[in-house]
Design a protein around this nucleic acid. Structure first.
Length: 893
RNA sequence: AGGCGCGUAGCUCAGGGGUAGAGCACUAGCUCGACACGCUAGGGGUCGGCGGUUCGAAACCGCCCGCGCCUACCA
């Protein structure tokens, strides 16, 4: 019936075998309609270019824990998987390939290039999907989606058209963040700011018509002076009153520009005079609007100075800076250079310094969308866990800017807008138009820009389920139950999904959002390839096994705290897997000929140890469910770890051995049942965390035959058996408390053994002297267990017994433990041991008495607390008296 | 500049008003019919600092120091 397990757990073969089987049998597949309650999660779609990193591993482990847990609880679980087309990132990959062939995308042309990207995707894209499978992810792979597939593209187009028709999409010519390497606009949040050391150059601008007079401006970007169209001072700045309205001569360029007054200028900063470059600085742009200044664009789309930069044309931004500084110095117009720290924005894809750049882009007017998205969180329709992120979310929603959605790349959803060459009107529609909607001309050109990748991901919770069609999946699974993600994409993704979900589905996309930590390196830095501080999850999986890795991540996933991953911890949980394995091996070895069929817990005459482990199991079950429901994964993991190792293995397995090896067949059968029952439940509890090892063991375990009518699959895999729930039928609080008293006595004897250095092989005699009949009976009842676990050959139990002179003393509750060490008692060692114990107990006495001597404590603390402290103090006094008495006797020996 | 978070054992981290916890590392002893990836016992912490609230603070509040992150802006 049961088979024997190998001596140690070998993960690799087990993982491969079970994953294939799970998938083949369709256990991951969600029914579009079902009588079961629905539970759904959409995966944060990894980039199609991506490789599994620690962040993915954590993110998907947590999702898988939730999905497996809910599935076992009987929910119809949909974990929707897929990948993101990752516009810029993917285009970069293919462009790099082309570069190696000494070509660029323009050599191929748009169509051929896109074809090439699809080819790349087919051949080497989506590798991360296979890696997620190695992690054990129980996604519904039959439903895997891609943001560029046909259905999702239709959803994108529908959304764009509707937003356009609703007046929520518009074009405007203003400054945007431009990446001169990717050649595209970026939204505000796609720019990563970094503090850098820079300089503040002070430059003299001669005042026109007043030879020898200068104003000094301070700038961090001297090259932008090529595009200056004014200098500004504060309107109330007395130093410069006479200058307002005059002109200064732009050095090197020789253009005359006005001095304007604007209260944007900070009088305290620098010289109080600012150069204004409306085409290359966000603040200057605003000043320019107020004063009707020219916007002089001095760079091309690669950040190279254009014809407007005259003699500097053709120079790169940074090259131009150097030249200009040198030439200013040579002409004596550079007054001084100060060190100055500033934050520099970089492209989040390629880290190139972004350039504020004047261009015509498409925007989403987000204010009306944000309003609902904000209210949904404030009203609790969507709950963000941990709560502290709600403030972050709300803050961002309240200060939201319009979203620049156009990107000047080729890989992505091309904006479905057509310009009429005849009348200039824009035609937007679900079908590609053949003529202009305004003048009917057929001279149409489609917009070449594509949409921001996040535009399509914003639709993910409903586009993956078939929207805009009305599908059974949407009816069953939208809104989704939970979104699990890192805070780094709270704004990029979560906020946008909220806005789109509410606008198009009229319901929030998810009821819970669980925000987990970022996995960082030892310095608390984000792991990144460029920093070279990456630990590869697949290497870890190879080395320690998937289950150990997953358990580690769960154990580390404390709320609101970043994870600094330490490899020793993974080794620790690898050992834990092995422990589970060996406990199971032991169990199976002792279930020879055992059949749980027909046996119920209630029919059995349970021992104290049986009741204790069932009680503790019940507590573990309750806590696991509770902590999972609150997304306290680390507490679930730690609780199960403690139960498994410190209770089931350390105590129950040892206690059960007497029954298993003894001659009482009823006792043996009961122990076998409880052992089987506890392990079976433990494996179920652990399965969401450690899917592979639990399945492997569970398969080897005997099963109760399914009663007629039950689904066959329920007996086929641990994945589909019921997740344990707290049950009064397993609650034995009194028996458990008794057992713990016995355990304290066993620990007391072991303490003497350990401290007196009595080798485990040496059998000893022990006398237990109780102070009450009740505890004497308890000890008597448990003498077998005490003898076995403390390795006692000869055990005497009585009330208020005399301590033999040459015996060591230990105290456990109201039981005195005498360990006669005939002839070999080392007086010095025993005295030392007793002194140590007395020291410990005196610390306690000290603490308790101080408390109780404090009248305000006695008066003001709750009565039960005071009573409890009194009891503890009395107990400690008693214990000390015994120890001191023993010490005195020893000294007289 | 504002916001958030974090300073707990040698290391990596939990915990969170009523005697300080785990893993690893450390010490001593162990082939006890699952496991040396193990067993038993043990050592190790004025919980970053200073004030406050409280009968009681590692926990709550304020300030300070150190570290990290986010947002904004800084010519």
């Amino acid at each position: 019936m049961s088979k024997e397990l190998a001596k140690g757990y070998e993960p690799h073969d087990v993982e491969k075998r079970w994953y294939a089987q799970w998938q083949e049998k369709g256990y991951f597949h969600a029914a579009a309609t079902s009588d079961k309650k629905p539970y759904s999660i959409v995966i944060p779609p990894p980039n199609v270019t991506g490789a599994l990193h620690m962040g993915h591993a954590l993110n998907n482990t947590l999702q898988d824990i939730l999905c497996r847990w809910k599935r076992m609880q009987g929910y119809n679980v949909l974990w929707m998987p897929g990948t993101d087309h990752a516009g810029i990132a993917t285009q970069n990959v293919v462009e790099r390939q082309l570069a190696a062939e000494k070509k660029d995308r323009h050599d191929l042309g748009r169509e051929a290039f896109i074809e090439r990207v699809w080819k790349w995707k087919a051949e080497s894209g989506g590798q991360i999907i296979g890696q997620l499978k190695r992690l054990g992810a129980s996604c519904d792979w039959e439903r895997e989606r891609f943001t560029m597939d046909e259905g999702l593209s239709k959803a994108v187009r529908t959304v764009f058209v509707k937003l356009y028709e609703d007046g929520l999409i518009y074009r405007d010519n203003r400054l945007i963040n431009w990446c001169p390497r990717c050649h595209t606009a970026l939204s505000d949040i796609e720019v990563e700011h970094e503090e850098k050391k820079g300089h503040l150059w002070h430059i003299r601008y001669p005042v026109v018509g007043e030879p020898g007079r200068f104003v000094v401006v301070a700038t961090t970007r001297p090259e932008t002076m090529l595009g200056d169209s004014a200098v500004a001072v504060h309107p109330e700045d007395e130093r410069y009153q006479g200058l307002i309205g005059k002109k200064v001569l732009l050095p090197l360029v020789g253009r005359e520009i006005p001095v304007v007054a604007d209260d944007y200028v900070d009088r305290e900063f620098g010289t109080g005079v600012v150069k204004i470059t409306p085409a290359h600085d966000f603040n200057d742009f605003e000043v320019g609007v107020r004063h009707g200044l020219d916007r002089i664009n001095i760079f091309d789309d690669s950040g190279i100075v254009n014809a407007a930069g005259r003699q500097y044309e053709g120079l790169d931004r940074f090259e131009a800076r150097k030249r200009i500084v040198v030439e200013l110095e040579e002409t004596g117009l550079l007054e001084k250079i100060d060190d100055h720290g500033l934050s520099v924005g970089g492209c989040y894809r390629c880290k190139t310094v972004v350039e504020p750049y004047l261009s015509l882009q498409w925007y989403v007017k987000v204010a009306p969308l944000a309003e609902r998205a904000l209210a949904a969180v404030k009203d609790g329709k969507t709950k963000i866990v941990p709560k502290q992120w709600e403030a972050n979310y709300c803050d961002w929603m309240e200060n939201i800017h319009d979203w620049c959605i156009s990107r000047q790349i080729w890989w992505g959803h091309r904006i479905p807008a057509w310009f009429c060459d005849h009348c200039g009107a824009i035609t937007v529609g679900m079908e590609d138009p053949s003529k202009c909607c305004t003048c009917g001309s057929d001279e149409l050109r489609q917009e070449t820009d594509v949409l921001d990748t996040w535009f399509s991901s914003a639709l993910w919770p409903f586009s993956t389920m078939g929207w805009p069609d009305k599908t059974p999946e949407l009816a069953t699974f939208y809104p989704t139950s939970c979104l699990v993600t890192g805070f780094d994409i709270l704004f990029f993704w979560v906020a946008r999904m909220m806005m789109m979900g509410l606008h198009f589905m009229d319901e929030v996309p998810f009821t819970d959002v669980y925000i987990h930590a970022l996995v960082r390196d030892a310095q608390g830095q984000k792991m990144s390839k460029s920093k070279g501080n990456v630990i590869d999850p697949l290497t870890i999986i190879e080395q320690y096994g998937t289950d150990a890795f997953r358990f580690t991540l769960a154990a580390f996933a404390a709320q609101g705290r970043d994870i600094k991953l330490a490899e020793e911890r993974i080794a620790g949980y690898r050992n834990f897997c092995n422990k589970v394995w060996n406990a199971s091996r032991f169990t199976l070895m002792n279930l020879e000929g055992f059949d749980p069929a027909g046996i119920e817990l209630t029919d059995l005459n349970l021992s104290q140890a049986d009741k204790w482990i069932l009680h503790r199991l019940n507590v573990a079950i309750g806590e696991t469910n509770q902590t999972l429901a609150e997304y306290r994964f680390n507490e679930s993991a730690m609780g199960l770890y403690q139960f498994t190792w410190s209770e089931f293995c350390d105590w129950y397995l040892e206690l059960s051995k007497r029954d298993l090896y003894g001659s009482d067949s009823e006792r043996k059968k009961t122990a076998q049942y409880v052992l089987w029952y506890t392990l079976d439940h433990l494996l179920r509890l652990l399965h969401p965390f450690m899917p592979f090892i639990t399945e492997e063991i569970w398969q080897a375990l005997p099963k109760k035959q399914a009663e007629g009518g039950k689904l066959k699959a329920e007996g086929e895999t641990i994945m589909l058996v019921e997740y344990p729930a707290f049950c009064e039928c397993r609650a034995f609080p009194e028996a458990a408390a008794d057992m713990e008293k016995v355990m304290a006595v066993i620990s007391g004897i072991r303490n003497v053994r350990g401290e007196m250095e009595v080798p485990p092989s040496r059998e000893i005699a022990v006398i237990l002297s109780s102070s009450s009949e009740e505890s004497r009976l308890l000890m008597k009842h448990s003498e077998g267990a005490i003898m076995a676990l403390a390795r006692v050959a000869d055990l005497a139990i009585g009330i208020n017994m005399e301590k033999p002179e040459d015996a060591s003393l230990q105290v456990a509750g109201d039981v005195q433990i005498f360990v006669p060490l005939k002839g070999m008692v080392d007086v010095v060692a025993e005295a030392e041991r007793l002194n140590k114990e007395i020291g410990k107990i005196e610390k306690e006495i000290d603490m308790f008495s101080k408390k109780l001597e404090n009248p305000s404590f006695v008066d003001r603390a709750p009565a039960d607390v005071v009573a409890k402290e009194r009891e503890k103090l009395a107990e400690a006094f008693a214990k000390r008296a015994l120890l001191v008495g023993s010490l005195e006797k020893i000294r007289t020996l």
